[in-house]
Amino acid sequence: MKLYKVDAIVLRSREMRDADRILTLLSRQKGKIKAVAHGVNKPSSRKRGAVQPFCYSSFLLYRGRELDSVNQCEGIEAFSGLRADLDRISYASYLAELTDYASMEDQINGEAFFLLLTILHLISRDGADVELLTRSFEIRLLDIAGLRPHLDNCVGCGVPVESETVGFSSSTGGVVCGRCSGIAGDVKFFPRGTVEILKLLLKWDLKKTERIKVSPRVRQQLRQIMQNYISYHLEKKLATALFLEKLYYHY
């Protein structure tokens, strides 16, 4: 059967020729898929709404020789709250790009799919703590991808790190005790509380993230830890992360 049905989140939608778009979808049933949506830039297109970035839609796809194409699609959840705020759009773009890079094509990844769906629901609400939810998403996605940093024991000697100041190294993959701080050139020191919040973000119910009170200084430290760690392990600084930096100068 050349036609197949998936429920998917649109991670990316790029223009291709005049009215067509190439979509990167994260589907529940088949993982990451690339598909072309013909004629969706035309005002008469009925598929237009469902192929917008971050939309959760139901797709009927036609298996092509090189690229699948969208036969029919219908929006399930449009997350219109995301489009009503610049911060939310910018962070949602970052979350989508991060998921895109952390997912392999045609590899089913239900956990990443449901994580992204939940986070999009949460950040599209008015008054959501978008930044903290983003940090929580990052650490959980890294966990799913098998890239979670070690946060309890020193990556050098394996001893639990309990000092007030904790070293963190992206290249060795986690926290470092005082004696092992020479293990790598990229060790940076943070208060223990910051690392504890990172652990909390991993375990805490995502819907209750806003209950965690985090000072601007700790937010900045969390941002630094996660951005360095992600850039190191993905071997790339994401375009959306750079965009956020340009937009807010504080990311």
Binding site: P53, I89, Y94, A96, E97, T240, F243, K246
Partner: peptide, 8 residues
């Protein structure tokens, strides 16, 4: 954002 095109 996904193409890195900013205000500048």
């Amino acid at each position: 954002p996904s193409e890195g095109i900013g205000p500048d």
